[in-house]
Amino acid sequence: MPTTVDIPPGLSFPTSGPDLVAPEPEHCPGPDSKQAGKMDACAGCPNQTICSTAPKGPDPDLPPIQARLSQIRHKLLILSGKGGVGKSTFTTLLSQSFSLSHPYHQIGLMDIDICGPSLPKMLGVEHEKIHTSSSGLSPVYVSDNLSVMSIQFMLPNQHDAVIWRGPKKNGLIKQFLRDVDWGELDFLIIDTPPGTSDEHLSVVTLLKQSGIDGAILVTTPQEVSLLDVRKEFDFCRKAGVKVLGIVENMSGFICPNCETKSEIFTATTGGGEGLARSLGVEFLGRVPLDPRIGVACDYGESVFEAYPESQAVKALEEIVGKVRRKVVGEEEGMEEE
């Protein structure tokens, strides 16, 4: 039977905002707003009394968060509207490709998929534990220029379920941003859970002052996935987050023996490229299904080092190049190279 997981002693953290009894409605002014519980949109909301009586004022944790993140040049969100599209796998491969293709860059990877932290497994560091020092929490290093932070490192048992409500999740995200000693980073890549819920609102709100370079939306070719990605795009629009582009994952199956491509998920409405065109954002590329990627992630190995000739690896390298040019800029990128 799953247990409610508590953070081990020495890693306590604050909650973030009042403990709401229902999700915030679309036009909610925000629990911390001076108008919380008093606007027309608050009428009939189960949280109205909670919000109207909660303490108001600026979050005292925002200045230290901004100071900590001042050492990070670029921040990227990886989003998907639904689960099962390979978002965490793509995030893992994207960060590995960044670190390998640009060894002079320092890459940080933050896993805020609190109920399903899979990045440590895919990176081969699932049994590591984080350490504390006078400068904060130390991330786990996968390589000389790639580090990762995840709740997985805090669990007493790797199979424990994390059964938390929103405020406790938000508090952990706040601690990751405020207390983790990333050092100087060129890129902080943030892997989020599916949907548009507590974790997404928290990270966008907390990163607002220090700046978010943009989000990458991950989808698969079929319409059922594109439907939810449209909602993710709408979330970004309402939250003021720039969408850097769309990636179509699982775009055909590549046979590892003969390199023949077969369509597993048919793009009935134009796939990721058609969606990008309709939304007016860049289509960053297609990453085909390759069973060797799944095996590499299961064993925490690098598919880039094991199968550098695979089409999936080449596709990922092209996507990294596009993302880097959009974020860093052509001239700065040429100077660094």
Rank of each mutant, 00 (worst) to 15 (best):
D113Y: 02
G285A: 04
H131D: 08
V281F: 00
Y141P: 00
Q152H: 14
E318G: 07
F304Q: 14
P18Q: 08
E337G: 14
S150A: 03
D298R: 05
F233G: 14
G271D: 02
G240L: 06
D19Q: 11
K314H: 02
P58V: 09
I163M: 14
Q48A: 04
P25W: 12
V125D: 01
L93E: 07
E301G: 10
V162A: 11
F90A: 03
F253D: 06
L11T: 11
I107V: 15
V313N: 05
I319G: 01
S302F: 05
V320K: 02
T91F: 01
H127C: 01
I72R: 09
I189S: 11
V247T: 10
Q106E: 14
L201V: 04
F98Y: 15
P14R: 00
G30N: 00
C28K: 03
G17F: 00
D32W: 13
D290A: 07
G329A: 07
P156W: 14
E128A: 04
M250F: 14
G136H: 10
L188P: 02
E184R: 10
R73Y: 12
S70P: 02
K238N: 10
P8T: 15
F304S: 09
E301T: 06
Q158D: 15
I189A: 13
G214Q: 10
L109F: 11
K56F: 05
S80N: 09
R237Q: 15
L316D: 03
T53M: 09
S302Y: 07
L146G: 09
Q209W: 06
E317L: 11
T4W: 03
G108T: 01
K326V: 06
